[in-house]
Each structure stands twice: as C-alpha cells, then as structure tokens.
Write a protein that binds this DNA or RNA. Sequence first.
DNA 1: CTATAAACGTAAACAGTTTTCATTTGTAGC
DNA 2: GCTACAAATGAAAACTGTTTACGTTTATAG
Lengths: 146, 146
Amino acid sequence: MITERQITSILKKRGYKLTPQRKAILKVITQSYDHLTPYNIYERVHQESPDVGLVTVYRTLDLLTKLGLICEVHAEGNCHSYLVKRPSEQHHHHLLCSQCGTVVDFVDCGVEELQERLCQKTGFEIHDHLLEFVGCCRNCQKTTPS
Amino acid sequence: MITERQITSILKKRGYKLTPQRKAILKVITQSYDHLTPYNIYERVHQESPDVGLVTVYRTLDLLTKLGLICEVHAEGNCHSYLVKRPSEQHHHHLLCSQCGTVVDFVDCGVEELQERLCQKTGFEIHDHLLEFVGCCRNCQKTTPS
DNA sequence: CTATAAACGTAAACAGTTTTCATTTGTAGC
DNA sequence: GCTACAAATGAAAACTGTTTACGTTTATAG
C-alpha cells in the first residue's frame, strides 16, 4: 500500500498544498483495505475531523485520480468506489470480498493469450481490459458459513 | 441476438402486457449493436414514438433486468449502459469498441485457472468475475488510422 | 363488451456530484 | 516571524441521473 507519507511527498513535489483536510482524507484512504465511496470516506474523515466537508472529499479524489494514485472498483453494484493504489504495480487487478469490502490485488492476470485470440478473430485492436473477481474472504467465511 | 419476437413471447408467458411503448423500446435495443444508456434509448425511441417517456424506459429496463434479458457494460466510464443478451450464452463477456460502442460477445474466457490459483493463494471463495475488453473495431480503424 | 389490474405520463422527490463564490490558509520569499 | 498571493475550503445552489407518487389510460381475460 502506498503510505500517507509517500502521497504527501508526491503532492509537495507537484506543488499542491498540504492542508489538514487532505491529510485527514489521505489517512483514511491509505489505512483502509476496503474500497470506499466518496460518502464512506466523508463519514470516516468526519468522525475525526468534523470540519472536513463532502465537497473536499470529492475534490481530493479528483486530485488523486489526476495524479494516478487511486483506482476505481466496478463490480458489486457501486461503480464509484475507490482504493489507493499499491506501489509499483502498474498493471494489476482486484479481488473483492462482497461481505466486508476487502480488496486484494493480483498482478499476473494472464489474459494476453485470450486478448490475442480475440484480436485475430474479431479484427479489433484491443487497448485495455477490466477484470475483477468477487467472492468471500477467509474471515467472512467464518462469520457466515453458507 | 435475442429477437424482439423472442422477448415479446417471454413477456407474454410471464404475464406482462405488450404495450406499444414496450414494443418500441424492445425494437430499439434489440436492433442495436451498441451498449446504450437509458437516455440513449429514450432518444432513439422518442424519434419514432414521441409518446414514450424516459420513465417508461427506466421501468422497461428494470423489467428486462428482472427477467435476465439484458446485461450491463462497465468499462468506458459509463457504468449504466445496457445491452440485450444474445441467446443461449449463459456465461459470456464483452469486447467493446470505444469509438462506435459496438459490442462483441465472447464465451470462452478461460479465467478458471487464474481463479483457482487466486483461491489457493488468498483463501477466498470466488463466486463471480467481471471481464471486459476495450479497443477499436475493424471499421473504426479505417476511419481513424492512429 | 366489460371489468380490472397493469402500465403509463407528468410532476415532484431524491441521491450523487459539480459549480459558484466569498472566506480562509499554506507556503514561498523576504 | 511577516507578508502577499494563489490555492484550497465550506456552504449553498445548481445539475444530472434515477425513482416515487398519483391520477389516467389501456391491454387482456372472461
């Protein structure tokens, strides 16, 4: 996981100010293993720092997106859920727990072969792909043995 | 592609009424090879049948979702884009053209192996996955040679 | 042809996100 | 440490996409 400190240093380098609000938001999202909606983040930040507004959460998410520091999570209904990127993993995908929201990264998706096959068959030039797995993590299996 | 007629017959069987509005909406979405947003559908339907409202489009999409006759498309920003299911393909995925929106289905995603590996490694029970490819179709490659 | 429940359109409500604008604040330069 | 200024913020309003409420219309079984 990228640490709060690392992001802080990136912001500084790029000339962005280090406000207490941004620090509070960064703390929340870097310390979470879940994917969080803007409102989720707002709630958590608000507990510790009630002076931070929802609008600032949106603005900070925009900034982090622009800097490429967060990724979206699509599966599980909500399409606007965010997650701090782990370091040095340019190409990676997510495995989500549908109960607790925990996200695990994985790197070797191995779809290149399939992609090549599809290009051949369809004549498409393929630029990108989206891959997510959804399941139940080890912890949640204990609590809800289905 | 499932035909208008096939869906019509499913609706009848399940006791839903065959209103002119539903017929107009079905005509549009069964005849499109793109993924369409509710508003896209509304626009197209509206041209032919100006008496059909946007709310009815939403209601019809709900119905088709409930009956499992349409699927969502996630990649490409808009997460509320829909597409009629092709027949008899229970498990399939999509390849999208980012220029014209055309969607091609493919069946053999071959991620079972990866899924098994992830289960072993993480202890997750994996229930589902989301896989989409995005690229440029043969036609659009001609018009925009990049 | 009739009765009835389902479906419809319009308008209003709602949720999530973005914009506006006046005020506050982090930081570079002194 | 002060100062000046652009950047960032909060509160309120605006916007967009979606859902709900409700009185009216209509497809269909009998």
